[in-house]
């Protein structure tokens, strides 16, 4: 496709602009399809139907415009500098996640050798931003919310990391592109046409990953950090206008990125059985990946709209007493099969 070699700087700027436009678009698509439409249907609420004419498609853009016009209020007692920087830290974490996700054989920002490891490391940077937001607000709700968030994110970071080890064992590589190729070139009992998506062998790992991702995204049933009936809005209580919008964008942008990573790890990412190499793989890649992302995002939001909130102690017990031992067992079982077979 790129017959002409584009110089590094131009290529990097091009990639940056593309990712810059993907993140708000992803936030709008997920927010619109799932938050406004699916939730309205599942919970028998009335979603917005008026703005823009067709099923209220303009609602979220209108919300964005509303946020732009809001006054930028920083509480008098707050630690101003930290307060102002917190949304930035959260957004950087989201942004850096997109570096390693491949959308085609050549459509990847940077195929790092330690791809998945890097993604996990970067995704946990957001915790720092959340803690900063909660602490700097000088608000009791915000402080409680941010501590809950930190306690929850570190508890579920472990199952997330350990679940991924199973995939790494099977693929022999940490590079996300390598993991996709391992699935595309794999075979199920000698049948190589369909490849071998790791969901078939890593079903337990996928379950752990999904539960942990749900908690990392602070989606219900793991939404204690922002539990609106207890903590107003948790660490976001004192934020208004644009800075609030950044938190919203980061939340949905991360949901999109984690769905993309789950799709890459367990569903084979961009590959489909028909065109595994060549230009068609690049053309089909983003479409196929997008479809798989929507499937996983659907699962995440389906769980979100269905289950009631956990209690704080139940949350910690679920991670430490169930998910972590289970993921250790999963690692050992995968390793035994890998070595024996």
């Amino acid at each position: 496709m790129f017959a002409v070699e584009i110089p590094y700087w131009q290529l990097t700027i091009l990639k940056t602009v593309i990712v810059l436009s993907i993140i708000p678009a992803a936030a709008v698509v997920l927010g619109y399809v799932f938050l406004l439409k699916m939730m309205a249907h599942m919970q028998s609420r009335m979603g917005p139907m008026e703005p823009g004419g067709f099923h209220g498609w303009f609602q979220l853009i209108g919300d964005g415009i509303k946020f732009i016009q809001k006054e930028d209020i920083i509480p008098g007692e707050a630690d101003r500098r930290v307060f102002a920087m917190a949304p930035l830290v959260v957004l950087i974490s989201t942004f850096l996640l997109y570096v390693v996700v491949p959308a085609g054989p050549r459509l990847v920002v940077q195929n790092l050798d330690v791809g998945i490891f890097y993604a996990l490391a970067v995704s946990s940077l957001g915790v720092i931003g959340v803690l900063m937001a909660g602490w700097a607000s000088a608000n009791k709700f915000a402080l409680l919310g941010s501590l809950r968030a930190a306690g929850q994110l570190i508890a579920y970071e472990l199952p997330l990391v350990l679940a991924v080890v199973g995939v790494v064992i099977q693929a022999n590589t940490m590079s996300l592109q390598g993991i996709v190729h391992a699935q595309a070139d794999g075979a199920i009992f000698g049948l190589s046409w369909f490849g071998n998506p790791f969901i078939l062998t890593q079903l337990v790992g996928f379950g752990i990953f999904l539960a942990a991702a749900q908690a990392e995204l602070t989606q219900t049933p793991f939404d204690m950090p922002v539990a609106e009936s207890e903590l107003v809005a948790g660490y976001m209580t004192e934020y208004s206008g644009f800075r609030f919008l950044f938190f919203f964008m980061a939340e949905f942008g991360t949901a999109f990125a984690l769905s993309a990573i789950a799709a890459t790890l367990y569903f084979g990412g961009w590959y489909q059985p028909f065109f595994k190499t060549g230009i068609m793989a690049d053309v089909m890649g983003p479409v196929v990946l997008g479809a798989k992302i929507m499937l996983i995002a659907f699962l995440i939001f389906w769980i979100r709209f269905t289950f009631p909130r956990f209690r704080e102690d139940q949350l910690q017990a679920f991670a430490w007493k169930f998910l972590i031992p289970l993921s250790l067992i999963n690692i050992m079982a995968t390793a035994v099969f890998k070595v024996v077979l």
Binding site: T16, V19, I68, Q69, I92, F246
Partner: peptide, 27 residues
């Protein structure tokens, strides 16, 4: 590239906040 992406995120936030400053009221 990773560093450039971090810088781009900072730039985007800065640009949006600067843009917002022009539009939003202060009372």
């Amino acid at each position: 590239t990773v560093a450039i992406f971090g810088a781009a995120a900072v730039l985007m936030v800065g640009a949006m906040l600067g843009f917002g400053r022009l539009l939003r009221p202060t009372r």
